[in-house]
Every structure is written in C-alpha cells, then in structure tokens.
Design a protein around this nucleic acid. Structure first.
Length: 364
DNA sequence: CACATTTGACCGCG
DNA sequence: CGCGGTCAAATGTG
C-alpha cells in the first residue's frame, strides 16, 4: 500500500520539520525578552512531540519492515489526513465515507475505534461551581449524547471535539458523575486531538457556565504541569535548557499543533502520561515521562489496577494496547509542514540534522 | 441565523 | 437481547 508508506514518509518529514522549526523558535525565545517560560515550554513540548512521533514512525516502519507495516499501519497508525479521515466517521451517513468502506476498511474502523487509547481521570469540582461537570479542559467539546448507564446513579454524557468536521479531530470524551461523590466526575477521553483549537481560554466555544467553571484550578494545574514537563524535558530530551528559567515575560500565542504531546493543557498532561506508558509498552526509547502535578482542589486521578501514579498523587487510568500507536499517529499533523530551515543546527539535540529526511529513497 | 444541547432512535458488540 | 455509544431531528440559545 503505497499511500501508507507515503503517509508515513510525509508525516515523518512533517514531524521533523516541525521539530526543527519549533526548536528554532525556541532558540529565538531564549534570547527574547518577550518570551515567557510557558512559551518556551510549549515549544519544547512541540519539539519533543515531533521527535517522538518521528521515532515512532521509524519504529513502526523499520521494526516490522516497511511493507508489512504498510498494510498493518494504515488503519492503526491513524491516517488522519483529510482525504482519508472519513474512514473514522460515522458508520451511517456521509457519502464521502462510503467510498472507503470496503470490507477491509469497515473492519478497520471498528478496530480503530476500539484501539483508540482511552484514559480516565477523575475531576473534582467544587460544590459552589454548581455540580455542572468538569470544566473545559482547553478543548472545545460538543455534547452529542447522554445515556443512563446501568447501575449508575447519574447519566453519562458524550462529547466530541467541536472541530470534528472542520479539522477532522476525532477526540471524544465521556463524563460521568461519580456515584459516591457527586462532586467527582469521571472523564474518559478517547483519542487525541488533531485540531488546532486546543487553546488556553481564548477561543472557548463552550457555554458560558462551563467557561466559568473551575478555570483557576485548571490553569494552576497547567502551570504546575508545565513546570514538571519542562523538568522532564530537560531530563529526557537532552536539550540544553539551562537558560530557560531566565526569561519570564509574556508573549502568548497558542496554536497547538495536533501532535502527540504539545501544549499546556490538561489534555496534554494526559498525553504525556500516555507516552510514558507507551514507553513501557513498546519497549522503545520513548522517553517522555511527564508527571502531572495537581492541586488538591483541582483535578485528581483515579486509582485502579491499571493506573499509573506519579509522585504527585496524580493517577491515570490508561486503557492501552500496542495500538496506542494508533493515536499517536492519528493525532497526526494536521498542521501542515513548516518550511525546512536549512541553516539550523541542533547542537544539543542528539539528532543528525544532516539526515536525509527529504530523500524518499531512504524509506524505500 | 448559526450554533449548541437534548433526546429518542438506531446500531454493533458481547 | 441488552447495553453502551452514536446519530440526527427537534429544540434551545445568543
């Protein structure tokens, strides 16, 4: 399947290009008075994300031979390019989708859905917030259903990304109030965002009451997270960030690429943690083991047999499988490529920038 | 009018 | 066949 190889190749190029671009931006930030630490962290995360994805692609492709992976990866590595994304769409409606629905692909859809990484967190809301549910988490969600669940006191709400159609973002989440503690909501996320709208609080399209909801806690969470993420990055990415903390001023722009672990949102907490799991799972050098600190009054995470707990008392339930890779790839770059910067050298990164990324022959 | 939410119907899976 | 997840028409909201 040539298109799969092609996709992998393109994605790889794209990711590495982004990595370079973001690193360059980061370098600019280091010498900029206007740079905030958050900006720098964001960029670092983007960079890391790009390299992680590239690594994963390489592992997928090299590990199990390109030919094999082509057929195997096509569905699972989540081709979310606009031309193909409809595969993941509703089994009903949309003539566009039908063109992809030969027998194989129908199976793939179902597989894909199942294999999408899911993770659960418990979000405690303060009673004064009115028990409306967990606040917005930096993404725009649109409710598409509600169900009474057997044995549960409260109905479960289903949300999908507002930008599902506009940006082919297939992230969904389910919110269910805990039976025991009505101030606690179980939020199950499925799939990761490929949209560009994972903004802070700027362009919220959620309802006003939601917007009001617990922003401070989330914000604090993000801040803490960012710091931790930065620490981890320093440890894991081997980027020389010694000067990072020195620049503290603000020039905020958030336009997150739909990469696996970018941005400063809660959502990205989760992604980092997933990547940590992937490391164990895949046995790769996947090294982003971010921890997600939290404040007692904000988010906390549930314990279960499959949970991971970090040093901050934050726990994630991660239902994962090898095909978590899927999501990494499905979170793929809808950011289209930034230009390759020829004169940039990543002195502190252990990456050969002379690598012939643009040479298709490398992959053949 | 353009969104978002609600809610009953539908569908696939176990 | 029941349950959970999703769809989509109806309704609500700004």
């Amino acid at each position: 399947m040539d298109c799969a190889v092609n996709w992998e190749y393109k994605t790889l190029i794209n990711e590495l290009t982004q990595g370079i671009e973001h690193t360059k931006q980061l370098r600019a930030h280091f010498s900029s008075v206007d740079s905030t630490i958050q900006n720098q962290e964001l960029l670092l995360q983007k960079i890391l994300s790009s390299y992680e994805q590239s690594l994963l692609i390489l592992k997928c492709c090299v590990g199990g031979s390109m030919v094999q992976s082509s057929s195997a990866m096509m569905p699972t590595c989540g081709v979310i390019e606009s031309s193909v994304v409809s595969v993941y769409g509703s089994p009903k409606s949309d003539g566009e989708k039908r063109s992809f629905q030969d027998h194989h692909e129908v199976i793939d859809i179902s597989k894909k859905r199942k294999l999408q990484p899911t993770w659960t967190e418990q979000v405690k809301v303060s009673p004064k917030s009115g028990f409306e549910g967990p606040t917005d988490d930096g993404y725009s969600w649109r409710k598409y259903g509600q169900k009474d669940i057997l044995g549960a006191k409260y109905p479960r709400s289903y949300y999908r990304c507002t930008y599902r159609h506009m940006q082919n973002c297939w992230a969904t989440k389910q919110v269910q109030r805990s039976d025991d503690d009505p101030t606690v909501f179980d939020v199950t996320y499925r799939g990761s965002h490929s949209c560009h709208h994972a903004t802070y609080y700027v362009q919220q399209s959620t309802s006003p009451e939601k917007r009001e909801f617990k922003k401070e806690a989330v914000y604090q969470n993000r801040q803490n997270y960012s710091t931790q993420a930065l620490m981890s990055l320093r440890a894991n990415l081997r980027v020389d960030t010694n000067d990072l903390d020195k620049n503290e001023q603000a020039a905020c722009h958030f336009s997150f690429p739909p990469t696996f672990s970018s941005g400063l949102t809660d959502e990205n907490h989760r992604r980092f943690q997933i990547s940590h799991v992937d490391e164990n799972l895949i046995g790769s050098g996947y090294s982003a083991s971010f921890v997600s600190p939290t404040t007692p009054e904000s988010n906390y995470f549930s314990v279960s047999s499959s949970s991971q707990m970090n040093g901050y008392g934050m726990i994630h339930n991660l239902n994962h499988s090898e095909s978590d890779l899927t999501d990494i790839f499905s979170a793929n770059t809808s950011t289209t490529s930034s230009p390759i910067v020829g004169d940039f050298s990543l002195d502190n990164l252990e990456l050969d920038t002379n690598f012939p990324f643009n040479n298709p022959n490398f992959f053949s």
